[in-house]
Design a binder for these strands. Sequence first.
RNA 1: GCCAAAGUGGCGGAAUUGGUAGACGCGCACGACUCAAAAUCGUGUACCGAAAGGUGUGUGGGUUCGAUUCCCACCUUUGGUACCA
Length: 930
Amino acid sequence: MAEYSKDEIKRIEEKWRMKWQQNGVYKTDNHSDKPKYYVLDMFPYPSGAGLHVGHPLGYIASDIVTRYKRLKGFNVLHPMGFDAFGLPAEQYAIQTGQHPRVTTEKNMATYVAQLSKIGFAFDWDRKVVTSDPSYYKWTQWIFMQLFNAWYDRTANNKVGKARPMTELVAELEKHGNKNIVAVCDDETPTITAAQWTAFNEIEKENFLQKYRIAYLAETMVNWCAALGTVLSNDEVKDGVSERGGYPVERIKMLQWNMRISAYAERLLTGLDTIDWPEPIKEMQRNWIGKSVGCELDFKLASGDDSIRVFTTRIDTIYGVTFMVIAPEHELVDKITTPAQREEVTHYVEVAKNRSERERMSEVKRISGAFTGAYVINPFNHEKVPVWIADYVLAGYGTGAVMAVPSSDTRDYAFAKHFNLPVVDVLEGPTSDITKDNFEPKSGKMINSGSLNGLPWQDAIEKALQHVETLGIGTRKVNYRMRDAIFGRQRYWGEPFPVYFDKGIPKLVDEKDLPVTLPEIDAYKPTETGEPPLGRAKGWNYKGHPYELTTMPGWAGSSWYWFRYMDPKNDKVFASKEALNYWKDVDLYIGGSEHATGHLLYSRFWCKVMKDLGYVSPEEPFKKLINQGHIQGISKLAYRINGTNKFVSYNLRKQYEVTPLHVDITFVDGDVLDVEKFRNWRDDLKNIELILEDGKYICGSEVDKMSKRYYNVVNPDDMVESYGADTLRMYEMFLGPLELSKPWNTNGIDGVFKFLRRFWNLFHDNQGNINVSDAEPSREELKVLHKTLKKIAYDIEHFSFNTSVSEFMICSNELSSMKSNKRAILEPLLITLAPFAPHIADELWEKLGHKESILYASFPQYNEEYLTESSFEYPISINGKVRVKMNFALDMPKDDIEKLVIASEVVQKWTEGKAPKKVIVVPGRIVNVVI
RNA sequence: GCCAAAGUGGCGGAAUUGGUAGACGCGCACGACUCAAAAUCGUGUACCGAAAGGUGUGUGGGUUCGAUUCCCACCUUUGGUACCA
């Protein structure tokens, strides 16, 4: 006696989750004759709020693929773990004194419990946790490899590659750095072997820092003295900290950095080799921001100095009417004339103290100051005034631009504002900057000496050659992407395996890894403004002080997919065998918000590790799918301003109201449960309600699903009410995986009914298993094979919403045929198993199988059952369907045409006249043009 | 501003190569069962129109025998980015 009822579902699902666990069915072996398939989810940060129904969306999709690939004969790796270092736990620690480890472990336990209820095929034995010392030991180890590496541009056919520092030192000892072409600090001097040898230890290390991939350097940061910490741009508002409103200043601070800029070109070209969504690739391309141009010197009109500019439009050099340099430019002080000094000093002072955020919010405001100095245009030898302005950034290019107001909108705005001359150098229909249709890359050169008459592209090449002939500059490729800051003044992160010996940063011995995070008495900066680790007692290595900052959030997530391959190994981060077997990730599912963070850093680390010979893939993630976000539907009640009255939705326009987010559990449909609402909070006890039709109707809006909006739907509740299988299928049924959509529990009934109907196919009216061994009819076979074909196609194309529809159609058809043939239901069941694993295994067992359905094979569809002999042609007249006619599929076009024209309906439309034209597309459509 | 994605019934969405727009589900309406309700099952459900018929995939144009699909211009929403020379 078994109906697919709430109790039965609970029994079935718990039974199978238990069995799967006991039998270790999700344990994945690193040795197999089967082909490998690695499915990865972006691992979560375990937040205190737990999972809401949006979180599992991607995991369900990857789980379906995992199970499908298993049935298709692959050895599939599908692991899960936690990105467990992070700010929320630390913030909580600062407020409550609770150790972030305690909070994090509690949260992870909640996540595991919630995830387990949904029936994922995770191999939990491979769980990795980034805050676990056995994991971050290897994060530290990788950091050491990056510290011990430099980027040789000449290696690997000039593509360049990372090489060990020992090789650099050997070369320095032999020849100095004159033959070294490396990615290094801009101001790295050329030295001889003798100079190198003469360096003392500190000088040597300072020199090597210019080459290391992980290096210490002074970088600009937002420093908040009151909070004793560095803030991100997000955390600074109007020059003060968002939290507390304390003053923030931009200061230079010695910080760990990652020389990701060395990999700019490979990160860019690598995008062409991977199967990722085009928008994500585009975001990364923009982030890397490659621009091809040249650098050239403009000599100062007086004195020997010259100013180097970077430009992509050397063709427009005859249009240069002024030059702008960054307020931070090193020559500002030197070239400013006495008459202009006061104004310039003042401007520099103001610009320096403006945060990037401030500069950003005032894009429209044009500001600048004249230095009093002039440079000479090397092409036409004219004198050009030099200005400073903060729209020129010190950190990009050379911190100086040759301004061409006739072909650059910013230069134009600046020229207009300060009344500087504009000289047109391009002529063409879209070359006029004062017109709306202005297109800077268009037209032919005018007013440009020997460049006159050339199209702009050709002029660039000719001007470049001229620059090279004069010896005043070179072709140059610039990237927008900067090196990444790799340190935080925080506690809850990986400690650096670095100590300082007489101020020189040194790595700890490999055998002393991991450097474990010390216990401290409070999770905030020290009184002297040092990071929290400054509080740790005895925080030193063999008597030398340890580095006090910790690694940023992205450290642990930049290599975790390798650790899953061999998570328990304590000799290496992953064994050669494991790395060789699993290689790279075949399918990665996660949100697009990580486009320029995690996804870029991971590619970077993978490339470095490849260069150093630790791994083989150039790219870590072959295919990427972005899942959209599930949004919440918030419910709103409308308070009449200044009163304790609430007005129902449709009457709200008559009053001045302020919407209040109401907990969605108080609302059924749109109707508010007034009792629950009143009891929610003290201030609502005595409210007055203005009703419509005796009810209080709530408004709705789509928001992020968040505690803040009281609109969170918990997957546990869904599993409790409908079962995990229904939840899984409903999440997929909502719409395309990559689209964001609001969660509406209302529709879930449809999926639940489908599963019950599916269940009933296997049972009689009394709930006894009832499956016939009779031969299936041709009709039944057709339904089966149509479904098999569609489901396989949909899974391969990540179109899970349409597979759920197809299952519904199939089960409706079989229901109406009263089909209960084993030959039909058994293959169908295997097809359903990736989507609804619990019910599938239960029915599989009822069909008499001893082994889980996980070990079955995905049925292959047979085209033979799908072929039709005839087709119901839609007959359209001038493109509008008017009637349908059935013809054999092998009927010649001419015959169809004759029959169609002769038909009553068509005759009516043509009024007996011959049609202008008849289009017959065999197996598709007939169109009669009249 | 720039880059990208999206816009289809009351709602979520479908239409795989330019070929029957609205599959499937929710909701709604009606019917069956029931003393009644719930549950379940069945039928119907884009819009206008009594019907014939007409209109319809954000808007306006275009290509085509035929456009949700291709092209041009525009509007709206969402995400990314930000003075990048």
